[in-house]
């Protein structure tokens, strides 16, 4: 089974891009499944059900969705194998710019939105910087020049990635991405695979539930603001 991780800031167009790409793949008779990881709620499963793909939802609650993702991905792989999927796609909302669900050797896609500002690609952490593919959405509503400038900014942030412009509404450009998905690597398990970049664990006293403010309550890894 091929595995693909898709992440990106909230509302950047992840679901729209995945849906359009899946439509290209199911036309070729492939069976696709999606797992959506989010924090509190999501309606994405309904969108996936509408196009007839298998879908599961994982809500991380008050945990970072990426931490939750990586602790649960192996179960998802098992589910995909039972369902006899050709491709398992994970969609996770990149709520924390520091964490990223990308795993070494597993095709990783980051979706960013051209309305989000030219400096955004630089601000997004490993989720974009270490993705194999960066998809840029919403190019249909900005000018040609802004598309080119945004593309350049993505190239600066991740010189290694293949970059696609995809229109999440019409699906323009999604065929090209589907070709890449078909070439993704196959796995029976992800056990012993490694994340592309470490995720910070509980680093300070507040991570472990401290609520009081003040010097005496600070323990662990503390970083000071430079003023």
């Amino acid at each position: 089974m091929k595995i693909v991780t898709v992440s990106g800031p909230p509302s950047s167009g992840k679901t729209a891009v995945i849906v359009k790409t899946i439509e290209n793949l199911t036309r070729d008779g492939l069976k696709i499944g999606v797992i959506k990881f989010d924090c509190l709620s999501t309606y994405d499963d309904q969108l996936y059900k509408k196009i007839g793909v298998e879908v599961k939802v994982g809500l991380s609650g008050n945990l970072c969705p990426d931490h939750y993702f990586i602790s649960n991905i192996e179960d998802c792989v098992k589910w995909g194998l039972v369902e006899n999927l050709d491709i398992l796609i994970s969609e996770s909302a990149g709520l924390c710019n520091r964490c990223s669900p990308h795993i070494k050797d597993v095709l990783s896609i980051c979706v960013v939105d051209s309305l989000s500002g030219v400096n955004t690609p630089k601000k997004i952490g490993p989720m974009l910087k270490l993705a194999d593919i960066v998809v840029i959405t919403k190019g249909d509503i900005v000018s040609q020049a802004e598309r080119e400038v945004f593309l350049f900014s993505v190239k600066q942030a991740n010189p290694k990635a293949s970059i696609f412009y995809i229109n999440g509404i019409t699906g323009q450009g999604s065929y090209d991405l589907s070709v890449y998905l078909k070439r993704a690597e196959e796995f029976e398990t992800l056990t012993h695979k490694k994340l592309k970049f470490s995720m910070p664990a509980a680093v300070c006293s507040y991570c472990t539930g401290e609520i009081r403010i003040g010097e005496e309550y600070l323990t662990g890894n503390i970083k000071r603001i430079k003023i």
Partner: peptide, 21 residues
């Protein structure tokens, strides 16, 4: 040529496009 946006051959202009910067 087909798949790498670096070689983009086409510039597009449509009524929905606006400057957002």
């Amino acid at each position: 040529k087909r798949f790498f946006i670096e070689n983009k051959l086409v510039a597009q202009l449509s009524q929905n496009m606006n400057f957002v910067m």
